[in-house]
């Protein structure tokens, strides 16, 4: 079992992860794919909103905020900080 596998909503601020798969379906999944969230993409958790949700992520050169429900459906693997 790999301890480094988690979902995006659990990624601590300042850490990076690599996307393994999307667990959402349909239009929700396509919307994520549009943003470049395909397997292998590196994502960094940047900062939380005042209430802790949503969280802003650095995705392919853009800053995108996702709600925890949506981030939960993205499986990632932690990568070491640079």
């Amino acid at each position: 079992m790999d301890n480094n596998v988690s979902t995006l909503d659990c990624l601590p601020i300042g850490r990076q992860g690599r996307i393994m798969s999307l667990m959402s379906t349909g239009s929700q999944k396509r919307r994520m794919l549009d943003l470049g969230l395909v397997a292998g993409t590196t994502v960094e958790a940047l900062h939380k909103s005042p209430s802790g949700d949503p969280v802003a992520y650095f995705i392919r050169g853009a800053v995108i905020a996702l709600r925890s429900e949506d981030a939960q459906k993205i499986r990632i693997k932690y990568t070491l900080p640079q």
């Binding site: 919307r31 994520m32 949503p54 800053v63 995108i64 905020a65 709600r67 949506d70």
Partner: peptide, 11 residues
Amino acid sequence: LPSSFALELPP
């Protein structure tokens, strides 16, 4: 229920 969305925070 609220649908999923992504909010872009531009520079």
